[in-house]
């Protein structure tokens, strides 16, 4: 059985890696997939806050990350989504550099590196640090997060980022800026947009998973805006769906090679 391990990369905190993962989780679930969620950020535990079913992995030492591959090989999850700790720097990357990608590919275990780029130069720098080391041993999904501004000069206009895009062909998703008030409420209440718009217990002001919705989010117009926002992101994820499906990945690879 094949397994795809999606993991967040980059040392920069606050670049929206966990936001990107949240969209991925709800997108995958709404498309019938049930990824194993692994929270390797034992400091913020963002993934576990939003998805309590996520498996928390303590990362006291580098080898704690072995759990990722172990789960892929033994538990046979077709999809594993791992949120790595921000600010981990070189140490976690070193773990990835020890991964026998070729051998795992033969066992049908492949990797997708998820990056989140903002207008902050550090977010680009830290992500390219990973891409430069991992090269074409993994596939890439880059979220262009416009939360801090519409222009991402270090991703669009630098020699290194252009080479990354042209040589490693990442799939890209743009996350438009979301109204700050909504964003804050979602964060405060640990809600995904999907939970808000799919909520069927509005009378009790609760999400489908029983979480309080607060005062702002349940409004009809707010939910409509959130629905449109999510739709724009899901449409882009549709274009990247080959990354999440083993059969589609093989088809894309065959097409690319001839």
């Amino acid at each position: 059985m094949s397994s795809i391990i999606l993991f967040t990369a980059g040392a920069k905190g606050g670049s929206g890696k966990s936001t990107a993962v949240r969209f991925l989780v709800t997108y995958l679930r709404e498309h019938g997939a049930n990824p194993l969620l692994m929270d390797l950020d034992d400091e913020n535990k963002t993934l576990s806050r939003f998805f309590p079913e996520a498996v928390s992995v303590g990362i006291k030492k580098k080898s704690s990350h072995d759990a990722l591959v172990h789960r892929a090989l033994t538990d046979q999850y077709p999809l594993i989504l791992a949120d790595l700790k921000a600010g981990t720097g070189r140490e976690v990357l070193e773990w990835f550099l020890e991964v026998p990608f070729e051998e795992l590919r033969a066992s049908q275990v492949t990797f997708v590196c998820i990056g989140s780029i903002t207008s902050s130069p550090d977010s680009v720098q830290s992500f390219l640090n990973w891409a430069g080391e991992l090269g074409d041993q993994v596939s890439y999904l880059v979220f262009r997060n416009l939360k801090d501004g519409e222009i991402l000069p270090d991703y669009e206009d630098t020699h290194e980022a252009i080479r990354f895009r042209k040589e490693l062909h990442p799939s890209q998703v743009t996350l438009p800026r979301l109204d700050e008030e909504y964003q804050t409420e979602l964060e405060r209440l640990n809600l995904t947009i999907s939970e808000v718009i799919d909520s069927d217990q509005l009378q009790q002001n609760l999400s489908a998973r029983g979480k309080p919705l607060g005062d702002i989010l349940p409004h009809l117009l707010v939910r409509a805006r959130l629905r449109n926002y999510q739709r724009r992101i899901y449409q882009q994820l549709d274009d990247a769906s080959h990354l999440f499906s083993p059969t589609q990945r093989q088809q894309v690879k065959r097409t690319a090679h001839g």
Binding site: Q125, N129, G132, E133, H159
Partner: peptide, 24 residues
């Protein structure tokens, strides 16, 4: 060894080179 694509040297400090539209 696999021919490596996208060579980039790991750096803890900013080392990106911004290009003009023509250079880009």
């Amino acid at each position: 060894p696999r021919p490596k694509r996208f060579n980039y040297t790991y750096s803890n400090t900013y080392n990106l080179t911004r290009l003009t539209p023509e250079q880009k």
